[in-house]
C-alpha cells in the first residue's frame, strides 16, 4: 500500500511515493534538462520506483495557494486518479507546508504569507500547539488581532518587511524559507489522512472564492 504525494504550488513540482512512511521516490532528487509537468513526473516516478498504479492507496495533494493554473493541474490529476482508483485524496495547504517547514527548523510561532490577489494574502498562523489557522485578506486588516500577543515570530515567504512596517515592536526572524518541504506531505501523513475525501467529495484548489464559501478543507 503506497502513498502518493503531489505538490504543484511551489516552483519545483513534486511527486513523492512512500511506503509506510518511507520515501521510495521524490522527484526533487532528480534533475532533467527539460522542465516536466506533474503527469510527466508521475510517469517518471512509476518507472523509477517500479511500482504499479494499482498499489497506490492514498493521495495527499497540495491545494495551494500558489500559481492558480499550476495548482489546478496537480489537484485535477489527484482527483481523477483517486476517483479512477476508488481511493481517497487528502488536501493540504501550501501555507501549512510552509509553516511546518519552518517549525521543523525552529520551534517558534510562524506566520506564512502568500500574496493572492491585489493586496490580499493567504495568511497562515502556526504555533505548533494548535491546528494551523488560515486567514485571507489585507495584512493591515487581518494581522492586528492575530498578532496582538506576539513578541517574536518567524515569517516565511518574501513579505517580512511589510509585517515589520506594520508591527515594529515585534521581533521578526527570517529563516529564509520561501517554499515548503514537500516531503512533509508524507512525514505528516497521519495528520493529513484525517481529512481524506472520497468521491463524491473532491479536493478544490484554494481560492478567495471557496475560502469565503467555507469549501476549503484543512
Amino acid at each position: 500500500m503506497l502513498t502518493l504525494g503531489i505538490s504543484t504550488s511551489f516552483s519545483n513540482y513534486a511527486i513523492i511515493i512512500a511506503k509506510a512512511g518511507d520515501v521510495l521516490f521524490n522527484s526533487n532528487d532528480l534533475h532533467f534538462e527539460e522542465k516536466k509537468n506533474i503527469t510527466e513526473w508521475f510517469e517518471v516516478a512509476l518507472e523509477e520506483s517500479k511500482i504499479s498504479v494499482k498499489d497506490i492507496s492514498k493521495i495527499i495533494v497540495d491545494i495551494g495557494p500558489g500559481g492558480t493554473t499550476s495548482v489546478r493541474t496537480g489537484v485535477a490529476f489527484a482527483n481523477s486518479l483517486a476517483y479512477s482508483l476508488g481511493i481517497a485524496v487528502c488536501p493540504v495547504s501550501s501555507i501549512e507546508l510552509l509553516s511546518m517547514t519552518s517549525w521543523a527548523q525552529q520551534k517558534t510561532t510562524v506566520l506564512s504569507l502568500i500574496k493572492f490577489m491585489k493586496n490580499d494574502y493567504f495568511i497562515g498562523f502556526y504555533d505548533g500547539k494548535n491546528d494551523i489557522r488560515i486567514l485571507y485578506g489585507e495584512l493591515a486588516d487581518v494581522l492586528p488581532d492575530l498578532l496582538k500577543d506576539e513578541k517574536s515570530l518567524i515569517i516565511t515567504g518574501k513579505f517580512q518587511q511589510k509585517v515589520a512596517d506594520l508591527f515594529p515592536e515585534i521581533e521578526i526572524i527570517n529563516l529564509g524559507i520561501m517554499k515548503g518541504d514537500t516531503e512533509l506531505l508524507i512525514k505528516n501523513e497521519d495528520l493529513f489522512s484525517k481529512r481524506a475525501l472520497k468521491f463524491p467529495e473532491i479536493a478544490f484548489p484554494i481560492s478567495e472564492q471557496n475560502y469565503a464559501n467555507n469549501q476549503v478543507h484543512f
Binding site: 508521475f42 489546478r72 485535477a76 489527484a78 481523477s80 486518479l81 483517486a82 476517483y83 479512477s84
Partner: peptide, 20 residues
C-alpha cells in the same frame, strides 16, 4: 483557454492511469 484545457487534460491522464 489554458486553464480550462489543463483541467481536462490532467483529469484525462489521471483517469487513464487509474483505468489503464
Amino acid at each position: 483557454l489554458v486553464g480550462s484545457l489543463l483541467v481536462g487534460i490532467n483529469t484525462a491522464i489521471g483517469l487513464g492511469h487509474g483505468w489503464n
